[in-house]
Simulated assay, not measured.
Amino acid sequence: MIPNVLSIAGTDPTGGAGIQADLKAFAAQGAYGMAAITAVVAQNTQGVRSFVTLEPGFIAEQIDAVFEDVRVDAVKIGMVATAAIVETIAQRLKHHGARNIVLDPVMIAKSGHHLLRPDAIAAIRDMLVPLSTLITPNLPEAAVLLGAEPDWTLAEMRARAETLHRLGPEWVLLKGGHLEGSSESTDILLGGGGHVEFSAPRVVTKNDHGTGCTLSAAIAALLPRHGMEESVRRAKDYLSGALAASAELTVGHGHGPLHHFYALWRS
């Protein structure tokens, strides 16, 4: 079975993040990608210029149009922007009985620009996090969700992963890419009665635009056919390869994109 996976997120006209990155990651994992757009973002590899959110009612129409016609095997949620959009997404996913929901709580772009209005933080924590099969925050995003300081150690990551899990998702993948002072990047997966730590050597590259979008999208594409731990392991291997091959692309003058199709194009 080829899984059908829906991304609910914002756009990136240069193709490295958001909906465009999600669709590439879905395809790279052998899944059929679909999209419901929450916001149209004017951005490139150097930063976000502005964004326009779509009306919650129209976002609901997009989601309903997909679910009423297509079997949806997994859902990836990215940029949601406002509390009203969060509430709409939560209502429609509940209505349709969505499963394998992966929430990447997108708050700040790689360039430092905010992609989430303040009123949406509590809405994400209260409405979308408990609905999710998996949440995939990085350390700054986890700090916002928990109201904690952004400076973490690995020991603090382990403790706060537990705190994030108590917010209600089935699983938490706390990403340690922002953890300083180590040649390795460690992510903590918590759920199912235990936890697993994934460590990988840091890939030194400036082409890291869309890493969070890509990882969560790859996991969503894998979940219909694999268990959670295996899906995360495969997605992380894929992300490492896409980062390592990113220098093969020449896109933009800032944080360049990953090479989503490095394995396919080489073959």
Rank of each mutant, 00 (worst) to 15 (best):
N44A: 02
G168I: 05
G15Q: 04
W171D: 00
P224A: 03
I63C: 08
F58C: 04
M79Q: 11
S183I: 07
I101C: 14
D187V: 09
I59E: 02
N207S: 09
Q20G: 02
A161S: 11
G181V: 05
Y32L: 00
R49S: 10
Y238L: 06
G252D: 11
Q20K: 06
I188G: 13
A31E: 01
I19D: 02
D12I: 02
P140D: 00
A36W: 03
L164E: 04
E87N: 12
L167A: 09
S240N: 08
N44W: 07
T38K: 05
T133H: 11
W152Y: 14
E229L: 03
G10C: 02
E248I: 01
A120M: 07
S7D: 00
S246A: 13
G177K: 14
T88D: 06
G57L: 10
A39M: 04
G252L: 08
M127F: 10
G168M: 03
L249N: 11
D12S: 08
R166M: 15
H96L: 03
L239Q: 07
V48I: 07
P3R: 01
P150L: 13
V232I: 14
L128H: 05
S50N: 11
L115G: 11
L115A: 13
A148R: 09
G147R: 03
G256W: 11
A81I: 13
V70R: 00
F67Y: 13
L243A: 12
V251M: 06
L190P: 13
A235K: 07
D104T: 13
I135C: 10
C213M: 06
V102Q: 07
G30M: 00
L239M: 14
Y238I: 09
G97E: 05
P130F: 14
S7T: 12
L154H: 15
E87Y: 15
G254H: 07
G192C: 12
R225E: 01
Q29P: 01
N138G: 06
G212W: 06
G97H: 09
I19R: 02
K110T: 07
H255P: 08
A235G: 09
V52R: 09
P201V: 04
H253L: 05
S231V: 09
E156C: 02
G256D: 04
K175R: 06
T205F: 13
P140N: 01
R166C: 06
A217V: 06
L131G: 09
Q91L: 12
D22H: 02
L179T: 03
E170W: 13
R117L: 11
L164P: 08
L154I: 02
A28D: 01
L131W: 12
W171G: 01
